[in-house]
């Protein structure tokens, strides 16, 4: 449903009831960027699984740039301790990519778990991020990994994941900044092309994802070695609220020395006061985060993770 043009109510727009658009099918990132320069309001389409919903929510593209045939967006690379995942990879292709499985198998496993079999064949990582829906999970996974979004043809070539929600260092030009789910958050106003995400693996010790309590609360958790200590970064996802990322540093050198309970409590205590949503009260969600973080840390501790993943010690 979308708002009627004069604000008189709601109407049920569908993807078949919009006018035909101008279709562009470029073959390279450079061509996409060139098209965007001419059609700054163009819609970029890949798997289209969420775009269809956005059309039902009121989006009406005049120009649509299909990036499905842009090979540069389908790559996974690992250079100099940075893992780059192309935005056009589907969940299926990405999570099964041999380089990802070799470099960051825990992310591959978590990624392979989201959505459904059918959706995984169509939906892309880029679409999952730019849909800006609170219930989607890639922003949670990548938030904990402190990934950067890499943009071509944009004012800033790199953005943190949180930029999706209009928080952090967003420049205000690409967003209406509102705390709303989905297309209403200005999902199609991203200037430039999301080419991929970059994850620094050089100091990454461990990563894990807990989605057993989805959709009430999910937790992605990364452990990095920073200045000889362990920094634990957790991103908390939920159905009705933007993800929250918090970090805590444990003054130990090895995950085997981590105390799951105290890390869990430390993360939970750093959560903002307003983490309640329609699926859970603030105090319950805070409690859940402590439990789930504790469980993830216990797994990390017991896994004997020692060297950064994918990095030869």
């Amino acid at each position: 449903m979308r708002a009627q043009a004069l604000g008189a109510g709601l109407v049920a727009q569908t993807q078949s009831s919009i006018p035909p658009f101008e279709l562009h099918r470029p073959g390279s990132v450079a061509e996409v960027v060139a098209l965007l320069a001419v059609h700054p309001e163009a819609v970029i389409a890949a798997g289209c699984t969420d775009l269809t919903a956005q059309l039902r929510e009121g989006r009406v593209p005049r120009d649509l740039i299909s990036v499905r045939r842009v090979p540069d967006l389908q790559q996974v690379r690992h250079d100099g301790g940075v893992l780059r995942i192309g935005a056009g990879l589907t969940h299926h292709e990405g999570s099964r990519h041999p380089l990802l499985q070799a470099t960051l198998p825990s992310l591959a496993a978590a990624w392979a778990d989201i959505a459904t079999v059918r959706i995984r064949y169509s939906a892309t990582i880029g679409g999952n991020l730019l849909a800006r829906r609170f219930r989607y999970e890639m922003p949670v996974l990548l938030g904990a990994l402190e990934a950067d979004l890499e943009l071509a043809g944009a004012t800033e070539p790199r953005r943190p994941v949180d930029w999706l929600w209009g928080g952090g260092d967003h420049d205000g030009g690409d967003h209406d900044g509102s705390e709303r789910d989905g297309a209403g958050a200005g999902a199609w106003r991203t200037r430039g092309l999301l080419t991929g995400v970059a994850i620094d693996t050089s100091d990454l010790l461990w990563f894990g994802y807990e989605r057993s309590m989805r959709p009430t609360t999910t937790v992605a958790l990364a452990i990095r070695v920073v200045d000889g200590s362990l920094r634990v970064t957790a991103t908390i996802g939920s159905e009705y609220r933007r993800p929250v990322t918090v970090s805590t540093t444990a003054d130990v050198a090895h995950p085997t020395d981590l105390d799951p309970g105290s890390v869990g409590r430390a993360v939970a205590s750093r959560l903002p006061d307003d983490i309640e949503d329609r699926a859970g009260s603030a105090e319950y969600r805070r409690h859940l985060v402590a439990v789930l973080v504790g469980r993830l840390v216990a797994t990390a501790r017991d896994s004997g993770a020692q060297a950064p993943e994918g990095v030869t010690a």
Binding site: M1, Q4, G9, V11
Partner: peptide, 12 residues
């Protein structure tokens, strides 16, 4: 034959 299609406006 000649079928028309309906859409409605719903209260906000």
């Amino acid at each position: 034959p000649g079928m028309l299609h309906a859409k409605v406006l719903r209260s906000p």
